[in-house]
Write a protein that binds this DNA or RNA. Structure first.
Lengths: 338, 338
DNA sequence: GTGAAAGCGCTAACAT
DNA sequence: ATGTTAGCGCTTTCAC
């Protein structure tokens, strides 16, 4: 049977012999419709396969029963987050709309998308790694791993500092003392915290950090290549490198291979994030798991809480949920060779 | 600076001292607006950070510059597909909206979501693993890996039969002759084709298939447990099991472990899909790669083609794109122990 | 070159 | 208990 997707409330009303207002009442379970009418309208709705258009509904009403997630593109990080969010949403009555650009990811994309939604379509919004965090909307907004600090928005993020300490201590525990660091962009909170953790762990171990051992990338494979090569070409080459995210770490491994070095025999490498891809490289990457899926779940929990208990939105200090990180040891690290 | 997300076309019009019709013309690049007016309106748009609401626009006009992808939930398969789609979309001017339920995934979800969109919000729709494929919409619709055959929709899928043959031949080549099969739901096209490929490869090798070696799951870990245990408890236990998808294969490995069997020493296991998770399990799974991301890219290519060349939509035979599959050998398979 | 007004599908306030 | 109507933000005739 061919099934026509374009059935409007008017079609239902005409066929049931009632006004569109009555159909609307039945659909939304409002009071003031007689049992026989409800019955009749329901039958027609089933016959026609009618579902009210979220677009039209959201334009008129405040309530859509939909959660919106804004991402700049769908890549490993956001994809993991979406899995967690989707899972968390299964328990609630909400549906999910993900709005994404074509990975253009230019600064301020979240402003644009937020504006395009214009307070419609979703009852609340999750912003994934936004660069703008001062937003004034009618609906609640939660930021996941925002790139800049000082947000007035509720925030969900991971224990970046603690995770970086774990990673660094792991390398120290394997006997490494000359450890390189591929940092992330300095304007990103998570990158800053990871660098802090790295420095802190070294300081705790009484090791003075050689400044040339810190090279800066920007969380992508392409931008990690130069820092990786710089570190690996140092006269006194580090025996281990900690990269501030997995994509950077993957590039470090690749660059090491290109320079004829073996990982982990000549060089230990640790990443951060535990994206699925980190286990797919050869050797599988030792990394810090920040449980991206749990970040997504937590964001949903916070957002749904905000939607359903509007009185909380006005509270002085916005919620800040931090998910613990843990070290996942795979095969890219080993004791320093003597 | 706090930035207000709710700026409407009326705000822009008022501030620029023109009518909303003029603002609309400027936004959409229509002719018949004087250069100074365009200039003034543009300035105000920038000042206010105005972006036209897709919701309102899509209600009124046919064109949104947005591609919609409907999924029943965001799990490994659909997440991979979204990555590919997002990448493919980067080259086009389109943005992406993913509409997902809370993984409820009950039969006919795509009818419901399609109806909720009611021809709005997107210029074209990609249906991921739909169970309904007879749809009559104004906008083009492409089905990825549909669950039932005989679709009148353009379809993108993978070489399921050939992939299953590759997997089975791999096991045969390792000396396995008693090979179990965890099938998927019989009403799904991909499941059927994979089973056919399995049977065909055995027949090609002159091996008669013991019927009790075929047990049926439903493509999830939970539904694969009983079939896995049945196979592993057989008096004449198979030395290898081919599962019709990775989630089933992962469960086979888990069940084998629980029964005290070692993979691959006591049992070789092959999956199908090559979701990232397949490489994360211990041991990493030998599987058939169906390049889910390329499925997503192909779907976008087909859909964009259909949107931009509407004359093709009426063509007699709908497009059918099939992506090749290949075997990925990891560590869950080895020669049969003698 | 620009504005007024209709209408997309729907909800909600107001009538009856 | 049900219908009529205004209007959400926008595009698009149709006037002027």
């Amino acid at each position: 049977m061919t099934w026509d997707a374009r059935v409007t409330i008017g079609d239902v009303a005409a066929r049931a012999g009632v006004s569109i207002a009555t159909v609307s009442r039945v659909v939304n379970g409002r009071y003031g419709v007689s049992a026989p009418t409800i019955e009749r309208v329901r039958t027609v709705i089933d016959e026609l396969g009618y579902e009210s258009s979220i677009v039209a509904r959201s334009l008129r009403s405040q309530h859509t029963n939909v959660i919106g997630i804004l991402v700049s593109g769908i890549e490993p990080f956001s994809a993991e987050l979406l899995k967690g969010a989707s899972r968390a949403l299964a328990d609630t009555g909400y549906e999910l709309v993900v709005y994404s650009g074509g990975m253009s990811g230019h600064e301020g994309w979240e402003r644009k998308y937020l504006s395009r939604l214009n307070g419609t379509l979703a009852d609340g919004i999750i912003l994934v790694t936004p660069t703008v965090v001062q937003v004034n909307t009618t609906h609640p907004v939660v930021a996941v791993d925002p790139h800049v600090g000082g947000s007035t928005l509720p925030v969900v993020d991971a224990e970046n500092l603690e995770g970086a300490r774990l990673a660094t201590r792991h390398l120290l525990g394997l006997g490494h003392t000359r450890i390189g660091f591929v940092a992330g962009r300095h304007d990103l909170v998570s990158a800053q915290r990871r660098e802090e953790g790295f420095r802190m762990a070294l300081a705790d171990a009484g090791i003075e950090l050689d400044p040339e051992l810190v090279q800066r990338g920007a969380f992508t494979e392409a931008t990690a290549e130069a820092p990786a090569r710089t570190l690996l070409s140092l006269a006194d080459r580090p025996t281990a490198i900690f990269a501030a995210n997995d994509l950077s770490a993957i590039q470090v491994v690749r660059s090491a291979l290109e320079l004829g070095l073996s990982v982990p025999d000549d060089l230990s490498v640790v990443g951060f994030d535990n994206i699925p891809e980190s286990a797919l490289v050869d050797p599988p990457l030792t990394t810090v798991d920040q449980s991206i899926q749990r970040l997504g779940e937590a964001a949903v929990d916070v957002l749904v809480g905000l939607i359903e208990r509007p009185e909380r939105r006005g509270e002085h200090a916005p919620v800040h949920v931090t998910i613990p990180t843990r070290l996942v040891v795979r095969r890219s690290t080993r004791e320093v060779s003597t």
